[in-house]
Write a protein that binds this DNA or RNA. Structure first.
Lengths: 115, 115
DNA sequence: AGACTAACTTGCACTATGCAAGTGAAGCTC
DNA sequence: GAGCTTCACTTGCATAGTGCAAGTTAGTCT
């Protein structure tokens, strides 16, 4: 399944910042990516993350991230069927952005941690 | 005027990513920061940016960014009074985040530019 | 059968966003 | 000095997104 980057191409402008923000520029998407980088794999694990993401938002973000080709979902067992979420290469590349955010936060918001 | 980082401390968690996203984690804030880095100074210049930010949103974001100590506003002339917006040191440090976003966008969304 | 878990979905109130139009202060034009 | 223009916003309102609680479905456990 190829990522559908073409569907919403340049909804605002061809700026790389604007387009990237159209994919992950909200309060939750990058936290989901952070948790996936940290090794959270199941829906439950993602849901139990410290920030307490509402379950409908989590389901929606996973769907959108999957649609954007950043996240891949697979059943790791049948009976009962259980799903594992993971980052694609595209998704893993966001770690640079995450790291930049961590550096900024640790430097400018006292008391915050990398987590 | 000291930045009021204490007012909303850790509304979600002490994670640096979460806290940073609470400040700039929406579709417009980082684009405003990008434009300020590019040298846009007046309200009009910011408004005329390619993405066409709605004027009420722009006013709101500038207020919030100023409240967070990322942006400073000053009158650069009287009669008529005209304002210049600029990034503080805290704000300028976000260039690392912006650059990471640009790198990701250019690599993964074909056709986008740094701008 | 009854309770429990994972992984969602649905309903609804509340908040945020986006567009258009309006405001006020000052300058410029004739 | 009446009228037009510009800058820097503010206001109103419809639509879209978020957040909380509750419900659902499929399967396991006892």
């Amino acid at each position: 399944m190829k990522p559908k980057t073409d569907a919403h191409r340049f909804s605002r402008s061809p700026c790389a910042v604007a387009c990237t923000l159209d994919l992950v520029g909200d309060k939750w998407s990058l936290l989901v990516v952070r948790d996936l980088l940290r090794g959270h794999v199941t829906y439950k694990e993602l849901q139990n993350s410290r920030e307490g993401i509402p379950t409908n938002i989590l389901a929606d973000r996973l769907k959108k991230l999957e649609g954007a080709g950043l996240v891949a979902k697979s059943a790791y067992q049948e009976h009962p069927v259980r799903y594992a979420y993971g980052l694609t290469e595209r998704g893993k590349d966001l770690s640079d952005v995450l790291m930049a955010l961590v550096r900024w936060g640790k430097k400018h918001i006292p008391g915050t941690q990398a987590l």
